[in-house]
Structure formats: C-alpha cells, structure tokens
Amino acid sequence: MDFFVQIIVSGLTFSAMYALAAVGLVLVWGAFNMLNMAHGIIMTLGAYFVLMWAELAGLPLILAAPVAMICGGLMGAFVYFASAHWMIKQRDFETTIIIATFGLGMAMEAGLLKLLAELFHSSPYAQPLSMGADSFLVAGVPVSYQRIIIWGAALILILILAAFLKRTSFGRAIRAVAQNSDAARLMGVRVRNVYIAVLALASALAGVSGIMLSSFKEVHPLMGGALMLKAFIVIVLAGLGNLTGALYAALLIGMVEATVKVLIADQYGFTAILILVILALIWKPAGIFGRSTVARQ
C-alpha cells in the first residue's frame, strides 16, 4: 500500500514538471512547426535565474521566482530572434530549425558553464527556493511541502494558460494560427507576434519546470537536457500539436517513470518510458490521444 502512495506522490511530481515543459513545446510546434532544441538550456536557466536574483541581486525569494519566469520568457524571445526569425521562409524549416537551435542551445550551455565558473565558483548549487525535506505523512509515506507547492503551482499555471488561450483575444489568435495560419493572417493576426509570444510563453513555463527540478536535486548547468528529452517524449506520445493530449501524456509518463523507479531501479526510468513510447508509436503513429485540439493534423 505504501509503495502505491509513494508512486503516486513521486509520479505526480514528475508529471507536473513534464506537463509544464511540454505544453510550451506543443504551442510552439502548433504555431509554426518549430521544435526548439534550446528548450533544455532554458529550463536550466530558469533555475539559475532564481539563484542569480536571490543570491546575487538579493531579491526576496517570493519575487525571485516570478522574475525568473519573466527572464525565461525573454530567453524565448531571444531564441526567436537568434534563429527562427531568419529561417522561417526556408524550405526545410522543420528540419533546419532543429539543427540550428541544437547549435544555439549547445552554445548557450557551454557559455553558461563558463559564466558560472566566474559567478559561483562552484557548481552544483543548492536551489534557494527548495524547502528541504519538511513533510507530513500520508498512509505512512512522507509527502514534502515542496511537492504540494509544485503540484499547486503546475495546476495554477496550466489553468491560467488554458484561460488565456480560451478567453482572451490574443489567446484565440494563438489557437487560430495553429489551426490555419493563412486564415489567421486574413483576420489581421500578426503571425510574427504570435511566434514570439508562444516561444516566450513556452520558455517561461520551461523555466518554472527547471526551478521545480532543481528544488529536488540542485542547480546544475546540465540538468535541463534530460528533462527536455522527456518533454519531447511526452509530446511525441500525445501526437505533436495536441495540447490536452500532452497533459494526459505527461501524467501517464510521470506515473510510469515513478512506477519503474520505485519498483525496479532508478536508472531504468528513462529506458522504460522510451520503450513505452516506441511501442505506442508502432501501434498508433499519430500519437495515442486522438484528435488534436490546437493544431492542424
């Protein structure tokens, strides 16, 4: 019984992080078929922005997180102007942008490593937002307050995002561009602004996801890479461009990973979800969660 609770507790935490990392990827893919390989380094940067604002600039922690989120968003705009802006008309944009953002992401990661050596002298570093291991018991399993905050934050951010996409005029414009970008332009939607906005949005959420991850382990320059790959696996499982599907897929993958980690061994978590996804793709190549809600087929 207690390992059952244990799986749910740690699975929900994985799911929360994967969901935040994946919904942004879905929005960006939906808007203009871009897969951003610099997504991982932006997650890492999210965690470091908290560190920088809190430790170096002395900002109170309660402000450091939202400020870090905004900085993450700015990094998304930076990625747009450093890569996609110049390439959007290329014939094989779908492919070339992956290579270009892979290069950009690697350059940013290596630059960050170099910069950190100057700024913090040592890494990894403890995440100042981490609340440590304070916890209460559920059916004999300790559940830390940290996890409660992560679940709550992920839920609130996703609800805000859903409301933004459904109820605001610009949110509708984002969905319109994903469903038919030419038609959206004929309605007067400035598609370029939508591209920048979705990248910024995705990067802000990725930053939060990175903060969450670092609050468990520590802030480390290479921490985003694996998280990004898992977010990719989530959107592949859901079918690219499927927003609600990505949420379900994040939940499923988080649970599967937690099950394998609790019942078998830590290091087989990634292998298990990858095999699951490959089998799922052989079974249903368009993703397992049916029709898309945001993007073209």
Partner: peptide, 22 residues
C-alpha cells in the same frame, strides 16, 4: 477564401470573433 479556411477546432462563435479580431 476558397475552401472556407475556418478554424476547425474552434466554436462557431469563436470563429466569428476571430473575424472581428482587429
């Protein structure tokens, strides 16, 4: 446009609202 180019995953009302986007 030809072929309507609607936003298939939006309600009729939201499609109309997109018409009045500006």
């Amino acid at each position: 446009p030809q072929g309507d180019m609607l936003f298939p995953e939006m309600s009729v009302y939201d499609n109309l609202r997109m018409g009045a986007y500006l």
